[in-house]
């Protein structure tokens, strides 16, 4: 089954074959970013709509640039300045955009499952740019792509994911994507931020980050959402940093050639120290570049070609 015209909603539902197709296509498209003229005509005349109900720097810009580099036209709706403020429902908003000729809807929303809902409402393909706590599939894909630029394969790789696993859609997509491709994943964070039964997804759950980091090939730090502090889920930024923060000392437990990753935006000095974040083994900026290439591949595979 091809990806053309399909929704991209989760890595849980995506086959490894489709993941491989996206990754290998992204590899071929990445060189466009280093050309003097960053444009190929492939998606000329297609319209890509981003519909973001939550703030975003990377994901939204990355999708928009991916579309523009492929010569597609883009239209960006930020819910905060749209008629959603007047109470317009999600399905009305999206259907209005669909009938204006938009070819694909890329949505980020705070409610888990909202992209699945939208996919049922719309005829055009829907791409999930982050739905609540559920998944952020293109982030998972770009992270796997970036890992493969530095490590020979995913199978057997030891990956440690640290932080607020409970609320993290990035963590879930990574868990689904990495375990499907045969990685050994360990998650670690404060007990209040580790979901019960997370081990049912095929990962090892640790209460101390040191246990997950030990021997890891990839150390992935998640952003601690400071809003959770107000709900009493962790006592203070300082305590989080002291007991769970990724610093040079904790990092030394990992493999010597371990790579360090973060989805952004970083709380420097909380979940990750500046010296680790800016160290040569941190590939955080590479992740961002890969993000554009992977999203170009996704748009190409879903929209490329003519009816």
């Amino acid at each position: 089954m091809t990806l053309r015209g399909q929704d991209l909603l989760s890595l849980q539902e995506m086959s490894t074959a489709d993941m491989e197709t996206i990754l290998s296509t992204a590899r071929s498209l990445k060189e466009i970013l280093s050309r003097p003229i960053k444009k190929v005509p492939t998606l000329r005349g297609k319209v890509v709509c981003t519909l973001f109900y939550e703030p975003s720097t990377r994901t939204r810009t990355s999708f928009e640039l991916a579309a523009k580099y492929m010569s597609a036209d883009t239209v960006s709706i930020a819910a905060s300045t749209s008629a959603a403020q007047k109470g317009e429902t999600l399905s009305d908003t999206a259907r209005n955009l669909e009938v204006m000729g938009v070819d694909v809807a890329i949505m980020r929303h705070s409610v888990s499952g909202s992209c699945h809902f939208l996919a049922k409402v719309l005829d055009i393909p829907v791409i999930n740019a982050g739905d609540g706590m559920h998944e952020h599939p293109t982030q998972g894909l770009l992270d796997i792509f970036t890992i493969l630029e530095h490590k020979p394969r995913i199978r057997g790789l030891k990956v440690a994911i640290l932080g607020d696993i409970l609320h993290s859609r990035v963590a879930r997509s990574l868990i689904f994507g990495l375990t499907k491709m045969g990685a050994e994943v360990a998650v670690a964070g404060p007990g209040t931020l580790l979901p019960p039964y997370i081990e049912d997804l095929g990962v090892r759950a640790c209460r101390r980050v040191e246990e997950a980091i030990e021997g890891a090939d990839v150390v992935y730090s998640l952003r601690i959402q400071l809003e959770r502090q107000n709900k009493g889920l962790f006592p203070s930024k300082r305590e989080y940093r002291d007991f769970y923060g990724l610093n040079r000392q904790r990092l030394s437990l990992a493999q010597e050639d371990a790579i360090i990753m973060h989805p952004g935006p970083m709380n420097r000095g909380v979940e990750i120290t500046t010296d680790v974040a800016d160290s040569p083994r941190a590939i955080i900026l590479d992740q961002v570049t890969s993000g554009v290439a992977v999203r170009m591949a996704v748009l190409y595979l879903i929209l490329g070609g003519r009816e």
Binding site: S28, V40, T42, R306
Partner: peptide
Amino acid sequence: LYRDDLTLRSTQPQVGP
């Protein structure tokens, strides 16, 4: 990426390097 006949070639055209 520059072809004018993408769909005629295959359902999922592969992009090479």
